[in-house]
Design a protein around this nucleic acid. Sequence first.
RNA 1: GCCGGAGUGGCGGAAUUGGCAGACGCGGUGGAUUCAAAAUCCACUUCUGGAAACAGAGUGGGGGUUCAAGUCCCCCCUCCGGCACCA
Length: 957
Amino acid sequence: MTDTQATDPPKSRYDARLADEIETRWQAWWEEHGTFRQPNPGEPGFDPSRPKYYCLDMFPYPSGSGLHVGHPEGYTATDIICRYKRMNGFNVLRPMGWDAFGLPAEQYAIQTGVHPEITTREAIDNFRRQLKRFGFSYDWSREFGTIDPGYYKWTQWIFLKLYHAWFDPEAEGGAGRARPIEELVEEFESGERRVRLNPNAAEYTGAGDLPDGTDAGAWSSLDRETRLAILDSYRLAYLSQQTVNWCPKLGTALANEEVIDGRSERGGFPVLRKPLRQWMFRITAYAERLLEDLGPLDWPNSTKTQQAEWIGRSEGAEIDFPLLDADGNISGESLRVFTTRPDTMFGATYMVVAPEHPLVELAQDIAPADTDLSVLSAYVGEARNKADVERQESKEKTGVFIGLTVKNPATGEPIPVWTSDYVLMGYGTGAIMAVPGQDQRDWEFAEKFGLPIVRTVRPPEGFDGDAYTGDGPAINSGFLDGLDVERAKQRMFEWMGDQQIGAKRVNYRLRDWLFSRQRYWGEPFPIVFDERGQHHAVSEDALPVELPPLADYQPVESDEPTPLLGKATGWVQTTAGRAGVGGLDPGAPVRRETNTMPGWAGSCWYYLRYCDPHNEDRFASREAESYWMDRRVGIPDRLGGVDLYVGGAEHAVLHLLYARFWHKVLYDLGEVTTPEPFQKMFHQGLITSFAYQRADRSLVPIDQVENRGSDEKPEHHEIETGERVHQITAKMSKSLKNVVNPDDVIAEYGADTFRLYEMYMGPLESSKPWNTRDIVGLHRLLQKIWRLCVNEDGSPRLAGSPRGESEKRLHRLIAKTGSDIERLSFNTAIAAIYEFVNEVSELTEDQADRFVRVLAPFAPHVGEELWSRLGPGGTRGSVSHASWPDHDPSMLVDDEVEIPVQVMGKVRSRITVAAGADATVLESAALADQKIAELIEGKTVRKVVVVPGKMVNIVAN
RNA sequence: GCCGGAGUGGCGGAAUUGGCAGACGCGGUGGAUUCAAAAUCCACUUCUGGAAACAGAGUGGGGGUUCAAGUCCCCCCUCCGGCACCA
C-alpha cells in the first residue's frame, strides 16, 4: 500500500465488498423485522382491504450439488413481480418449500450409506442458505418440506379422499363429478343405482360373474367380498393387477408419463411391461374435464397442447364383429373394436388384436383343430416379454393368424383375426378392424402377409401412395357409395344403430395413473391388509403413517418387485388397533402396505398447504384456502387460484396434469373453492452454457479449449489436438465442465448484480446461454447508480432542483418499468433503467426517492441501502413497503416530435413538428423540406401517405 | 412422420398494433485522465464502397401482398422442444 492510499479517506464505491456488506446486512434486517411475512385473514396485521396476489415458484428438489443457475432465474422473475405487487398494494403470498422425497436422494444414500433423511436435510439447509443470499422476498414462516410428517399426513389424507370417492359420470349434467363412496353404497342399498361393476373400469380381471341387477335387495344379498370388489371398481384410488411399466434398474414400477421411448425418465433405464398389482388413480374419469378446462387457463399454448395431446381425445365408434365358429356359423361371441373411421367398414379385410387380448387365450381353446398353436403361443410369449424399447425399435410389422374368423357386418364376408404387437392392449378395446386401403399401418401389414386390400375412398387423380387417408367419395361400400367421409360416417352410425352392432364412442389416450413405487424414500400409503388380503384404510385420526427408519435400504435388483419397506418387519406386521383401522377387531393382525407414493405425490397439492402451512386440523383452513385461492367470482373464464405459477416446461404433462387432477377431485368433494389450481402458468427458459464441438459433433470440456483468434473473430481450438472446434450452446453439465455455481458469482459481484444479469440475459421464456463476460455490465450499472446517488465521501448526492429533462425521463422510466414488469419483460425494463442512468446527471431528493422505488424490485439490496441513505433523517423502514411511484401520462409525450419522411419507402429526411400535428400539416411540412423537394423535383407526386405521429411516405415518379 | 417454437451485427438481445431495423448490454477501435495502470469519462462500432458528404445492400433462402414487411400470405432450409404403430 502506498502512502497516498493510506491517507486518503476511503471512497464510497460500489464493489463486491460493499455489495456483500449491504446485502448481508439487509437480509438480516428483513429477517429480524419479518419484512416479508404475509399474515393470513384473521391474523394481526392482515389488511382485508387489499387485493390478493398468489405467486408461486415450482419448489426445488434439494439436491446435494446445491442451487443451479437455472433456479434463481424463475425465482428472480417472481421476486420482481411480488415486490412490485406489494408496492402496488397487494397482499402477496410468496412461499418456498422443498420437494424432498424421491429417487435421487435414495440413490445417493445407497452410494454413500448415509440415510436419505440426513442428506436431504443437509441439502435443504444449503438450498435455504443460498436462496436467502439472493434476497428473495419469501415468507419463510410458511416453509415446509414434503418429507415433514406434518405435511405428508395431509398427502395421505388426500389419498384417502380419493380412496373413499368414486366418479359419478352422470353428475353435473353429464360432466361428471367425484362423490363420496358412501353415497354410492346408499344408492346401491336403496336400489336407486344398478348394482354392478363399474362399466368404465377396465381393470377388473377377477374370476367369476358378478351380479348385475337393479333389485332393491340386490346389494344386501351380496356377500361382503363381492360388495368390496364392486366398490373397488369404482374407487378413484384402487388396487389393480395390470400390465405396468417395470424398471428393474430402479427397482420400481413407473407411471406412463415417466416412461420416454421405453426408458425411465430418470436415469434412462430400460422399462419392461409386467403384470403387477399396484395402486392406481382413476385419472381417466377426468379426461374430458382435464381437457375441457385447459381452455380458459392463461398457460403457454405449447403446454396446453402437450396436455391435450397426452389426454388424446378421439371420436369414433365401438363396433362388434360376430365371431364365427369352426363351421362358419355365428358363435354368439363377438369381437369389439374401436375405430375413428366406421365409414371404411366395407374395406375391413381382417382383424388384429393385441397379443395381450383375451381372445388370444380363447383362441388356443376354440381354434379349429388344424391350427398350429405353437407359432401363436411363441409369438404372443415373445411380444409380451419384449421391452417397450424393443417393441419400438422395429417398425417392421409382425403377426400371427390366431385361427379365428369373424363376420364383417357390412360385407357379410368372413375375415380372419390376427394378432400383432402394432395393436396396443391399452388403447380402445385392444382390437381393430384393419382397413389397409385407408390406413398405412394396416396396408403394410396386409402387404407383408398377403391379405386383401380394398379401397373404400376414391383417392384423387394421380395419387400414387399406399393407403389413402384423405377425404373423397366412398367406393366399394354398398349403401355408402358416393358419400364423402363425414357423411359416410353419419350414415354408418345410423346403420350400426339399426343393426345394434355398434355406437358412437369417445376414446382417450390417457391411461390411469400408476401411483405406487417399490422404493423407500416416499410417503407410506395409509393402507393395511387383513389376513385375507383385503385392503383397509387407516382412519384419518391415525395419520400420519410415518415412514419407519430403515438401516438397510439397499434395493434388491430383481425382476420381481420387492418393496424396500418390507424390510421394516416390525412396522409392517401390526394390528388393526395399532394401525388405526376401524371395522376390524383391534387385535386382528394386519400387514401394512409396503409400497410408497411416487415423487409426484408431494407436489400435487403443496400450493394449497402454503395457504396455511401450520394447520394441524385441516390441510389448510377453509378461510385461508378460499382467500388465497379465490377465483374472484365475476371474472369470466377464471378457473384457477394461483395468480402466477412459474417453473420449467419439463413439467408440462407430469406435475401439471397430476396436480390438476388432485385439485379437481378436492374441488368435487367440496374441499377447495376453485376447479383449477393455476390460472396463469409461465415457463422460464433453460439457461445453457457455451460448449465446444468437434467436427464429428462430439463435445469438448470447456477448460480444454483455447481461443487462438481475436476477441472479435474468435477461433476456438482444442488444446490437446489443436483441432478447430465450434462454439455451440448446450445444457450445463459436469462432464462439459461448463457448470456455473451461483455462490461464486455472488462472491465476485453480489446478489443484486446476479439478479440483474439473469433478468437482462433475454426474454424470460427463451433459452439463453450463460456468458460470464456479460455480468460485469450489470455490475457497472449498479456502480453508476451508486455514483448517481452517493458522493465519494458516502453522503447523499442530491440536486436542489430538477436538472434538464430528468423529471420527464423519470416519468417515462416509471411507466416503462411498470408495464414491462406486468408483461414479464424484465430485460427491456432493465434496458430502460440503463437509459435513464445514462441520460440523467443528478437527481433531487424527491426524484431519487421515486427512482429508488423503481430500482428496488430488481436490485432490492441497493434499493434498500439508497432508500435509507437518501431519505429524511433516521430510518424509515423498508422500501419493500413503499408505494410504487405514480407517473403523469402527460409527461410521456413530447411537445415536438421528429418524423421521418420517406420517398418511395426509403427514409430521405426528417422533419420536426408539433406533437399533435395532423395529416395536412405533416404533408405540407414534408413537401416543404428542402431535401425532399430536391428529390421529387421533376417527378409527379402520385400519393402521400401520412401516419400522424409516425411517418410520411411520398410516392413519386 | 405429426404438433409446437425459433432463425436479426463479432456475441446476448430490442423493435408491444404493418410505419425510422439493430434500443440496451458485452466485446472492439480511438481519445481524455494518469508517471503508469486499474477504474472512470467521451467518440465511433451491421456490411460493402468512400478521406468524407453520401450511395448501395441488409432481419435463414425463394416468391407474393402493400405507399410501407423482421412483422402478413405461399413454398423451402436449418435448429430447439414435444409426441410417435393411439386405430
